[in-house]
């Protein structure tokens, strides 16, 4: 047996050597075409969106939210449709609050945006409604990445995306991680003051329209000066919805 083994090992070894030297061809994507909600790590609302009509004009009755999406696979030579649906048992918003607009991936494109039309209804003044969007299978795409967290070097993805809709001031998602350094602790009254003084409702610290520390310092100080003048003029300290005196850290 041992004598025969060496006659087997040697040819096998030589064959392996030859195979090892063979140039490997690039493999192509062989999975079905899929699509997912794309999470840009540096965007504050990458995991969910809170949309508040309270920071919009009073005359605005509907608005469109755009949620970025990316495909898995190669671009096609024709437009392809994406099927988005609401997850009924995880949503409190009813169809009168929203319209999921048709979403297509254009020919030759790898990305698109889901357009969600939200409607301003009276009940949003007192209730925040939740809408869980989900990618469903369509003729062109299967649901893609079920859940992948983003990182500084790589975006993430998911097939579900939560949206919250209301018509009262909502604490911005980056208040505790960014805005607090310039405006202090959150309250609805303070946020309203910040909007009145700065003319802004969003203070992004990432993305193309991010604000610099210098500009945020200016906003923080402008609010502090406004409050100082307000308190002096009114002879009383401005308080928030819980009765706490409003203050700003930058003086």
């Amino acid at each position: 047996m041992v004598k025969h083994l060496k006659h087997i090992y040697l040819p096998v070894f030589l064959i392996l050597l030859v195979i090892a030297c063979k140039k490997s061809e690039l493999t192509s994507y062989t999975q079905p075409d899929m699509i997912y909600f794309y999470k840009d790590h540096y965007l504050t609302n990458k995991d969910s969106i809170v949309y508040s009509f309270a920071v919009k004009s009073n005359s605005l009755q509907a608005d469109t939210i755009r949620i970025p999406m990316r495909i898995m696979g190669v671009a096609a030579g024709h437009d392809r449709s994406v099927h988005i649906q609401a997850v009924a048992d995880s949503s409190t918003a009813s169809p009168e609050h929203y319209t999921i607009l048709p979403t297509t991936v254009k020919a030759g494109e790898f990305t698109t945006n889901l357009s969600l039309l939200v409607h301003r209804k009276a009940d949003l003044k007192t209730n925040e409604l939740r809408l869980l969007l989900e990618i469903a299978a369509s003729e062109d795409f299967l649901p893609g990445v079920y859940h992948s967290a983003s990182s500084p070097s790589m975006g993430g993805g998911s097939v579900r995306f939560p949206v919250r809709i209301n018509d009262y001031l909502t604490k911005p998602l980056n208040w505790d991680t960014f805005m607090t350094f310039y405006f202090g602790s959150y309250s609805q009254v303070k946020y309203k003051l910040v909007i009145d003084v700065t003319g802004r409702t969003e203070f992004p610290n990432s993305g193309d329209d991010r604000l610099t520390p210098s500009e945020m310092t200016y906003f923080g100080k402008a609010c502090a000066y406004y409050l100082e003048e307000y308190n002096k003029t009114n002879g009383t300290k401005l308080t928030d919805e819980t009765g706490q005196e409003i203050t700003f850290p930058l003086l």
């Binding site: 610099t212 100080k221 402008a222 502090a224 003086l251």
Partner: peptide, 19 residues
């Protein structure tokens, strides 16, 4: 004042300290 030890972007002189 302004600190140039900051990320790239607009960096202007700020409002003065209060008081």
């Amino acid at each position: 004042s302004r600190s140039l030890n900051a990320p790239a972007g607009l960096n202007k002189l700020n409002l003065p300290p209060s008081g």
